[in-house]
Design a protein around this nucleic acid. Structure first.
Lengths: 159, 159
DNA sequence: ACAAAAAAGTCTCATATGAGACTAAATGAA
DNA sequence: TTCATTTAGTCTCATATGAGACTTTTTTGT
């Protein structure tokens, strides 16, 4: 069992300990959840996240979503086409730029979003249950800093 | 520009703010990096991470890697087969269980790992440059808690 | 004013990834 | 001890995803 215990310590043992830990946590949070949503509701990742984004802010464009999510435009384009086909969103031209389309959530889309988001919430709570309230606030603050800082480093080098 | 500004605030505006922020940060850190490694070195995600794991701990099995990474066994199996084919790892049977194979990094594998890990390190530093040293320590501690806690919530429900 | 470059969104093609089936070995229950 | 169940790893098939090409529109530079 020594080897197994050893691999447990991999979290602090890699050359990129913070990034590895973030990836580790997310591998166990997001990947299974998104797989389950896909199996159950037939939504791909960009579709899942786009519905979340549209629930937060009506009328965004695909390009805006790409910029603020890190998803690639081909996948987002597919998501938009599929969600429209499924009656979850509608599209309208942007009055100020003919290249752009504004995306709008339908009642069907809202209902779909409401079918999975409460469970994601519960899961997030479960994930965070090991932290005290002050610790959660701390984590949020630090993550907010990292996220705000993204434009500073994310284009500098992909590698 | 109001809409754009509004989407910027999505980080705290979703129903799963912490998970969303983690995913957001990782979308900008890991996804572009792994895509670049794949384009440059022909390594898939499980291959990239398996080399990292083997650099940390020699002789692990594919199943152990799956358990401690969140990667699925089919993908890991493929990674193992490919990395062996590329001369990056070798396999030996586990003396205590004939179903298992112990994985070993070759010199070629080490060289490959060394070709991308320093750049991932630099990128991690860039990502963390907005945090003070105490803040980094804090973040690591909180992430460690979340990670240690994974077995508690990750099997409870995928959704 | 015009041309070059960039941006927005869609499509095609190639490849990575997931689900499930499968075989063999090990474990657990009766 | 035997049998049912689980585990480890591989394979096939289906689907998600990424790269790059494309058309149209807009922006930028001369």
């Amino acid at each position: 069992m020594k080897e197994q215990d050893g691999l447990k310590h991999i979290l602090d043992g890699t050359a990129i300990p913070t990034a590895y830990k973030i990836g580790y946590v997310l591998n166990f949070f997001r990947e299974p959840s998104f797989r389950a949503i896909e199996a159950e509701l037939g939504l791909t990742r960009p579709e899942i996240v786009l519905l979340i984004a549209l629930n937060f802010r009506e009328g965004i464009t695909a390009a805006e979503f790409c910029e603020f999510s890190g998803h690639l435009k081909a996948g987002v384009s597919r998501a938009v086409i599929q969600l429209e086909k499924k009656g979850c969103i509608t599209r309208s031209p942007d009055p100020s730029d003919n290249r752009r389309q504004r995306l709008h959530l339908t009642e069907n889309g809202k209902a779909l979003y409401e079918s999975y988001i409460p469970r994601l919430q519960l899961r997030e709570q479960a994930m965070l249950s090991c932290l005290s309230k002050p610790e959660r606030a701390q984590l949020n603050k630090l993550l907010q800093k990292l996220a705000d800082h993204v434009p500073r480093w994310s284009s500098a080098s992909e590698l």
